[in-house]
Nucleic acid binder design. Structure first.
Ligand SMILES: [Mn+2]
Ligand SMILES: [Mn+2]
Ligand SMILES: [Zn+2]
Ligand SMILES: [Zn+2]
Lengths: 146, 146
DNA sequence: CAACAAATGAGATGCTTTTGCATTCTGCCA
DNA sequence: TGGCAGAATGCAAAAGCATCTCATTTGTTG
């Protein structure tokens, strides 16, 4: 079971044209197992430290960027501070973020997607990408707007 | 005519609880007259330099942030590099940006706005803000995707 | 016009991300 | 299996953007 997963990771890395190194395997495994799903480079660094793996922050940035180019990972620029990374599972979605506790939830709305295409067409633009993030307070009582 | 505009600017600044200083007047005037409409702090710095006004970059950042707090200006975090500022004319809109030439166009779509509210409600979130930016190639032949 | 508070400018500083380079590791072939 | 060329890593330095510190200047009010 675990052996299989590790091999999968190794394959993904190899398929991306990258050497299968310990940092890459560890980082990818962490992204796969991560509960939060959405982590910053520094989160990755600290989580790996907690797991006893000391990998340089520069390497983490480099690897995440390479994974992004390879389509294994998606990078988001939520407001405030660091970029956030998540495993790319092939299904596009947008985000709603709690500005109190940081919770991130995902959603996909075909209506919004369609409208964007129509708007782009009206303006004479092609659509290469888009970023939609809703910011608010989540349902946690401790987060409800004061 | 010009006198009136300048007074308007002065009033806006004063109403925001800020002293009417030369840097603030010049920055606000530039935003009002700016053709691009969407400028970075450094853009403001350089445009003012071109106009013979040498105002420190730190002051520009400070003033833009104050204007933002006062609701005179809106700040956007488009991908890559600096924050972009624009005069807040009171009407919310989102953006579509050309990833080749940087052109920025604005749009407002009630359907998208409504869907966001519904999504937030489903998730138990309140909506405090949102950012939607579409990235693509504009209609300029020189920008069309290769 | 004096007096005080607020604002500015210049440079230092902070934070995130990238880069250069010496060293180490992988993948591959003899 | 051993060895080698090229790729990857770690560390420290640098870069990019934004904010802060503090001495000096400016705006406001009486
Ligand atoms: Mn996500
Ligand atoms: Mn705009
Ligand atoms: Zn919350
Ligand atoms: Zn263009």
């Amino acid at each position: 079971m675990r052996g299989k997963k590790d091999m999968m990771s190794g394959d993904d890395i190899r398929n991306a044209g990258l050497k299968v190194t310990l940092p890459r395997v560890k980082i990818l495994a962490l992204l796969e197992q991560s509960e939060q799903g959405h982590v910053s480079a520094e989160d990755v660094y600290k989580l790996l430290l907690d797991a006893g793996e000391e990998i340089g922050l520069a390497t983490i940035y480099r690897v995440l960027t390479q994974f992004e180019s390879a389509g294994l990972v998606t990078r988001h620029h939520f407001e405030g501070g660091q970029s956030v990374f998540e495993l790319d599972r092939g299904e596009h979605h947008d985000h709603i973020v709690c500005i109190k506790c940081g919770r991130v939830e995902e959603f996909f709305d075909q209506t919004i997607e369609d409208r964007q295409q129509e708007i782009a067409k009206e303006k004479g633009f092609s659509v290469e990408a888009h970023a939609l993030t809703i910011y608010g307070y989540c349902k946690d009582p401790a987060c409800r707007a004061s």
